[in-house]
Simulated assay, not measured.
Amino acid sequence: MYHFTALVTLLAALFYFYTSTRVARARIKYGVKLPAISGNADFERVFRVQMNTLEWLPIFLPSLWLFAIYISDWGAALVGAVWIIGRIVYMIGYTEAVPKRSPGFFIQALACTVLLLGALGAIVWRIVHG
């Protein structure tokens, strides 16, 4: 069973849900009516946090699960938690100013790279070595 990875998956989904609710609140706060996604820089930064999270989820989730299956549930969960922390740092920084998004982006990108390359390496190793 992959209890730790499942927990991190749900935490990632909750984080994404949270970023979505922030967009809804920001629409009201900054007066950005649907279907607009531009017109107020503060709103646009909140919106980009949500969209960038969505853009990374298709890379993160399969890598997380394949890492758990081929390497370690606990290890996948640990690196996955680092990814979530990176997304939180990204959200806080980007909400303040565009240049402040970089540390969080680097943290989450590094975590995702570890998961992706770790899973890929383990899969290839098993194919080659039976």
Rank of each mutant, 00 (worst) to 15 (best):
P35G: 08
Q50W: 04
M1V: 09
F105V: 08
I127F: 13
L66M: 15
A77D: 02
M91Y: 12
N52P: 07
V49M: 09
N52W: 10
L66G: 15
Y70Q: 08
Y18I: 12
L61H: 09
A12C: 02
A119L: 10
V79W: 08
P99R: 14
Q108L: 03
V49W: 09
V82Y: 00
I107Q: 01
N40K: 05
R126V: 05
V82N: 00
L117G: 06
V89T: 08
G104Y: 11
L120W: 03
G86K: 04
K29I: 15
C112P: 03
T21W: 11
L66W: 14
H3M: 07
Y2T: 04
V49L: 08
V82Q: 00
M51D: 00
L120T: 11
R45M: 06
M91C: 07
Y2H: 09
L7T: 10
A12M: 08
F43N: 05
S20Y: 11
L117T: 14
L115A: 12
L10A: 14
Y2A: 00
I85E: 04
N40S: 07
R126A: 12
F60K: 01
P58C: 06
F105Y: 12
I28M: 12
I127W: 10
Y90Q: 05
V98G: 04
W56L: 14
T19D: 08
I84G: 03
H129F: 15
V49E: 07
L61D: 01
A24Q: 09
S72R: 00
V46E: 12
D73E: 06
I88N: 04
I28L: 13
T21L: 15
L54N: 04
T53A: 06
E96Q: 11
I85P: 03
I71M: 02
T53E: 06
A81I: 06
H129D: 15
H3G: 13
P99D: 11
S20T: 15
E96W: 08
K29M: 13
F47W: 10
F106W: 14
L116V: 14
E55S: 02
F17H: 03
